[in-house]
Design a protein around this nucleic acid. Structure first.
Lengths: 129, 129
DNA sequence: AATGAAGGTCTCTAAATGAGACCTATATTC
DNA sequence: GAATATAGGTCTCATTTAGAGACCTTCATT
């Protein structure tokens, strides 16, 4: 945007704070995104197979479900197990890491539920102006 | 075939909630999205002006900053105040609703920070296969 | 045979995002 | 007095990402 801001960027880098490449952000981007949140909430009560998840989340596409599951698996939040049935079935379940994350996610969801009315009221007021 | 409804999602479904049209999701979509999260964290320590936020978040565009601020303002999470300086300056700060949300957000960020190493290790292993 | 279910991949389109030019008004610098 | 900077945005256009849905392979059942 401005060439003058190069100095600032260098400062941030020197301080070890680079928001543009922040690892915390990379983690949250996977774990707090729309579909992953719903997948995790569905896994709260136990393992699910691929098509079970598809049916539980009526408006997710196979493509996005696959991608969400891969991302979460890669981050070690859930595990993928293939069972040698016919046809083979695939089970997804939370790892310990995932279990540790769930309470935070649920706290957020509770807050959202509890703040719903305030938020809807705020929206109405805003839209009137 | 119907299992007992323990999970949050199951609960909602039992209450007739349709995940495809879930109001909680609409709230989280604003509040837990990439840029809004960073804006909120920046506001944790006090009000900021538009260009202060731009400078604090080096890789956000004006377009996305404006949009994030509008969404959060509309939801009543932050307030926008215009001061009659020359040129006019605009201050953004958390509302009470926003203040109530921040602890949950920070808990999430702490978890992300604390789980970083596990996650990075999981990624390396996954990528090797 | 035909159909269905398992767990995906692939392609194509639609929507969201990012880069950055532009705007109005005042203030400062050369 | 012309150029440049700062404030807080909007607008356009190219790139990315998401979504809809056809298609695939291998058994088992109808």
């Amino acid at each position: 945007m401005q060439r003058l801001s190069d100095g600032k960027l260098d400062q941030w880098k020197a301080e070890g704070f680079n928001p543009a490449n922040c690892p915390v952000r990379q983690v949250l981007d996977h774990v707090s995104a729309k579909w992953p949140v719903l997948v995790l909430m569905e896994l709260e009560t136990g393992p699910r197979r691929f098509n079970e998840l598809l049916r539980a989340l009526p408006d997710i596409s196979k493509r996005m479900l696959t991608q969400s599951l891969r991302d979460l698996e890669r981050d070690g939040i859930l595990r993928r197990e293939v069972f040698d049935t016919k046809p083979p079935s695939v089970s997804y379940s939370l790892t310990e890491l995932g279990e540790g994350f769930l309470p935070h996610l649920l706290a957020l969801v509770d807050w959202a539920e509890g703040s719903m009315q305030n938020i809807l009221t705020a929206r109405k007021e805003f839209d009137l102006r």
